[in-house]
Design a protein around this nucleic acid. Structure first.
Length: 423
RNA sequence: GGAGAAAUGGCAGAGUGGUCGAAUGCGGCAGUCUUGAAAACUGUUGAGGGUCACACCUCCGGGGGUUCGAAUCCCUCUUUCUCCGCCA
């Protein structure tokens, strides 16, 4: 959520920057400014009425004490009047605030100056590419075929137990998955992130804090009985650790990592793009998350990108990094780098990580602040990224490491799997 | 699930109808002392709205009520703790 004073003082800039996202925010921004103006007018009227009321109450108290009950009763008539007035003004005020908030929820974050203009995926800017694309043998298979061949992932069984998008990992497949989780967590903690185990269900306030609610509830599974939501990413419980927190400047920076299953309803496309592990309703992910001083949040973003790079390098997987364009960047992010892994057998790029700086957009909703060196409370910057999303990394390993003898386990994972090949 | 107790500033913890935005301690900040630091001492320090700045307004878990006036009384919801029951 953008800050109203900022919008008020930088109206043209805000509209211009939001145009990068291909939206014309002129009307919304004008409405924000006029609603805020109205809100402040009502606020002032209400404050004046309350001030008069407070003064009278004190006088009445004093009159009673000095035994002048009759005079006090005269003043009471006015306070009764004022009660009506303040009640009406309070209602108007709440309406203004509500209308203003509803509007603010609809305005996305302002893109960072480096975000390229563009309308879709094709306009994302490739900023880095690394790793050799392996030459596979003639009978190379996509990962869903390999999963069947080696009996390591059972999609039909998941279908039976739950439904489409809930695969069952078996034997070496399950072990490989566990190995990846442990490996990622170890890499992250070595880099200074503190490991957390977080709740998989969150309440409404948390969904709201990170921006899934009120508009994107369709993305999450909702447990209506208890009004809780299954998390779509560890970002939600992870970032909400800091909801309503006032930190000391010396507490920053904060780095957290956590493994969680993630649940996403997203009824979407079908066909090859959702085959196998490409798109699931339940999947595993290891997340990294930071709370930073505004001065160094972009440095932190670079550090996070570098960190994810080292992991992919160690796994010897071919990948590229994209700077997302205005049309593709998420609602809450100011700048996002996507990592994509090349799936040789499918001959396409698969998104495996998304690393973003949200600046104060989430912090404003969360009321996540720190006391700066001037003693003022200032919104912190939040960032997060996947390190990494499991299914597509798994798919990439299966496909890129397949040989005629079986699937070779990347060297760095062998200590975690306890075996070197799946055959 | 049953019974009881509680929810106050960054944290801990007083306060039971007006002079309480709220004692005290810790923490934070500034200063004295010190080569520097620690300790000690002195001062300062809640949040939000509003204003050029003041004034002023709001906030003692959430919501509602009583009253001229509520942190304080009443209702309700939520959460936490203790005891009992059940249970991974």
């Amino acid at each position: 959520m953008l800050q109203v004073p900022f919008i008020r003082e930088n109206k043209e800039y805000v509209i211009k920057r939001l145009a990068i996202r291909n939206i014309d925010a002129t009307q919304m921004i004008d409405d924000v400014i006029s609603l805020d103006e109205e809100r402040r007018q009502v606020q002032t009227q209400l404050d004046n009425a309350l001030a008069e009321s407070n003064t009278l109450s004190k006088e009445i108290g004093n009159l009673y004490k000095s035994g002048k009950a009759a005079e006090a009763n005269v003043l009471k008539e006015r306070t009764t009047e004022l009660k009506e007035i303040t009640k009406a003004l309070t209602e108007t005020l709440n309406e203004k605030i509500e209308a203003l908030n509803q509007l603010l929820y609809k305005i996305p974050n302002i893109p960072h100056p480096s975000v390229p203009k563009g309308s879709a995926e094709e306009d994302n800017e490739e900023v880095f590419k690394e790793g050799d694309i392996p030459v596979l043998h003639s009978e190379a298979l996509p990962h869903w075929e390999l999963a069947k061949k080696y009996n390591i992932i059972d999609f039909e069984l998941g279908n039976k137990i739950t439904g489409a998008g809930f695969p069952v990992y078996k034997g070496k497949g399950a072990r490989l998955q566990r190995a990846l989780i442990a490996y990622f967590l170890d890499k992250n903690t070595e880099a200074g992130y503190t490991e957390y185990q977080l709740p998989l269900l969150v309440n409404e306030a948390s969904g709201f804090g990170t921006g899934q609610l009120p508009d994107k509830e369709g993305q999450m599974y909702h447990v209506t009985e208890d009004n809780l939501y299954l998390i779509p990413t560890a970002e939600v419980p992870g970032t909400n650790i800091f909801r309503d927190e006032l930190l000391n400047e010396s507490d920053l920076p904060i780095g957290i990592t956590g493994y969680t299953p993630c649940f996403r309803r997203e009824a979407g496309s079908y066909g090859a793009h959702v085959r196998g592990l490409n798109r699931l309703h339940q999947f595993d992910k290891v997340e990294i998350l930071r709370v930073e001083h505004p001065n160094r949040s972009y440095q932190a973003l670079d550090e996070m990108v570098e960190h994810v790079k080292t992991i992919l390098k160690e796994l010897k997987l071919p990948y590229r990094i994209l700077r997302l364009c205005g049309g593709d960047i998420g609602f809450t992010a100011a700048l996002t780098f996507d990592f994509e892994l090349f799936s040789t057998a499918q001959d396409r790029w698969l998104e495996i990580s998304s690393v973003s700086n949200f600046e104060t957009f989430q912090a404003n909703r969360l009321k996540l602040r720190f006391k700066n060196s001037d003693g003022k409370n200032e919104l912190a910057h939040t960032l997060n990224g996947s390190s990494l999303a499991l299914p597509r990394v798994l798919a990439g390993i299966l496909e890129n490491y397949q040989t005629e003898d079986g699937i070779v386990i990347p060297d760095v994972l062998v200590p975690y799997t306890g075996f070197k090949i799946i055959n």
